[in-house]
């Protein structure tokens, strides 16, 4: 990989991780009931699972995002981040295909409101970036490399 291309995974980590940290943190700052209400709008998740999902997913986003930015245990955190973004893309696509009109994607709680279409585009782009992170072996600018 040329020197310039080697920075693509780093940018991917910072961007994808930054979005996960912001989304997770803003959702964790608010009560889980708010995220559960946002998930409800997707008409996709079983009602009994809404609150448990709303309690667990923001922590997964927040911590995965932090580890991704720091470049820690990238062998596990990069696929985990890809899994999260994949789940977001799948949920949003399912809502679009079923003709469900969402007021907001609920990704950042009630603090920042983004349209579902914008979020779908961003999340898909992040998945591409994460593909670069997963397949990167050099892992420059990461704690994994520094603490080897």
């Amino acid at each position: 990989m040329t020197r310039r291309l080697a920075w693509i995974p780093v940018a991917g980590r910072l961007l994808a991780g930054g979005i996960l940290v912001a989304g997770g943190f803003l959702k964790l700052r608010a009560p889980a009931e708010e995220f559960a209400a946002a998930l409800e709008a997707y008409r996709f998740f079983p009602p009994d699972l809404l609150l448990p999902i709303a309690r667990v997913v923001p922590w997964a986003e927040y911590l995965t995002g932090l580890y991704l930015i720091a470049g820690l245990w990238l062998r596990w955190t990069a696929p985990m981040a890809a899994l999260l973004y994949g789940a977001f893309v799948a949920s949003l696509s399912a809502a679009f295909l079923r003709g469900i009109s969402l007021e907001s994607c609920g990704c950042f709680g009630g603090a920042w409101i983004f349209s579902p279409a914008w979020t779908l585009a961003t999340d898909s782009f992040m998945l591409l970036f994460l593909w670069a992170v997963v397949s990167d072996r050099e892992r420059i600018f990461s704690l994994d490399r520094r603490l080897k």
């Binding site: 911590l63 932090l66 720091a70 820690l72 245990w73 704690l143 603490l147």
Partner: peptide, 11 residues
């Protein structure tokens, strides 16, 4: 070991 400690502190 170092990585585990850093991860713990970060968490």
């Amino acid at each position: 070991m170092k990585r585990t400690l850093v991860a713990f502190l970060l968490t």
